[in-house]
Design a protein around this nucleic acid. Sequence first.
DNA 1: GCGTAAACGGACCGCGCGGTCAACTTGTTA
DNA 2: TAACAAGTTGACCGCGCGGTCCGTTTACGC
Lengths: 212, 212
Amino acid sequence: MTVDRPLRADAARNRSSLLAAASEEFAAHGLDASVADIARRAGIGKGTVFRHFPTKDDLLAAVVLDRVDDLATLAHHLTTATDPGAALLEFMEAAAGRQQQLDLSFLREAGEVNARLTEARERLFTAIIALVTRAQQAGAVRPDIEGMDVILLMCAPSHVVSFVPSPPPDLWRRYLSLIFDGLRPEGAHPLPGPAVRDAATPVPNSARPGAK
Amino acid sequence: MTVDRPLRADAARNRSSLLAAASEEFAAHGLDASVADIARRAGIGKGTVFRHFPTKDDLLAAVVLDRVDDLATLAHHLTTATDPGAALLEFMEAAAGRQQQLDLSFLREAGEVNARLTEARERLFTAIIALVTRAQQAGAVRPDIEGMDVILLMCAPSHVVSFVPSPPPDLWRRYLSLIFDGLRPEGAHPLPGPAVRDAATPVPNSARPGAK
DNA sequence: GCGTAAACGGACCGCGCGGTCAACTTGTTA
DNA sequence: TAACAAGTTGACCGCGCGGTCCGTTTACGC
């Protein structure tokens, strides 16, 4: 393991503007944002990008790590909220809202390149499962769902909204409300089939359908 | 307008196997399935592909047209079903199930290249709106949603499922049930903000965020 | 059968991508 | 301030893509 000496001042500056640019560019153009565009937006040369991150995937992983870490922290805090139902809703709102269009596909794509990322993902997932369990115990959420269902559903609102031309910035809230109503116990109808067993480990690159 | 003389026998055969291959390849690899792969799967040369469809987008549009047309016909038939609530659910099942992973993004991508496609889309959308209205009048669906909501939500199940490694082939039914429960009147909570006004016209290519 | 237009196919083109490299600049430190 | 390691950069590489082109093959009307 390499000891990480402190970065030179300009390098640190470049690195952070690179991460910001990458975040925006990925959000705007999805996974096929080009490294050249990211570099241009960051105001640095393309070679510099690859000095900081050996691979485009590593850059993506760093961006995703920020988001996942942030969400995991929030989720963890919310596990001690007084109203478990409201806490789960608040978490889902945060997930849908802030990672607008930086959805699970990025987590899947970033894959296993980064050990810190998989650790953050695990923290996020266990916190979500705790949120769901507490919400169920409080009777705010139907008993026949599991944490993984919420994990899978939480980015559906922003995905759904991505189909409409110039969506009002809050449109995702509409679909989150609709989906959350489906999670409530009141109108629940029996679900067909079992829940998904273990989606905690994202697909390894080699086994994905569209693997390169 | 060119008069369409009948195709030569081999050409017709090639065209249909090309369409089949394209459908499978798009389903497997998404929008960036390569024309070369499609040609190989169809057992024809790459040049032949471009003889039948001047552009990759035109090929995509032809594939999407098939699906949309099929769905539109089904939706139209279901508008006369005896149980409007069950009819809407059946339609959403068909949409989620058969166009597994050939979702609205394809419709968006195929854009306006094909007049027949936009006509089929319009037929589909109006039929869906009718299904929703009938289901609401029957009290099977909450009154504060609109046809466009269903249009946007109907492909969410298969998208959500696409995140899990080797999903059981019926897993999408679980999420469709969940979402449909959210559409029922029983547990409905007020929705924030208005519905989306006019998403009937997909984004023109020039205005899309990830436009090429 | 035969002539011909229609259909075919694969070599080929230009492009933009992710990634490399060696010459150059700059922050740091003694 | 001098010297050097750390950092930067843009030209460059190989690749695979969508799309073209033209010599060849093939189905079909007579």
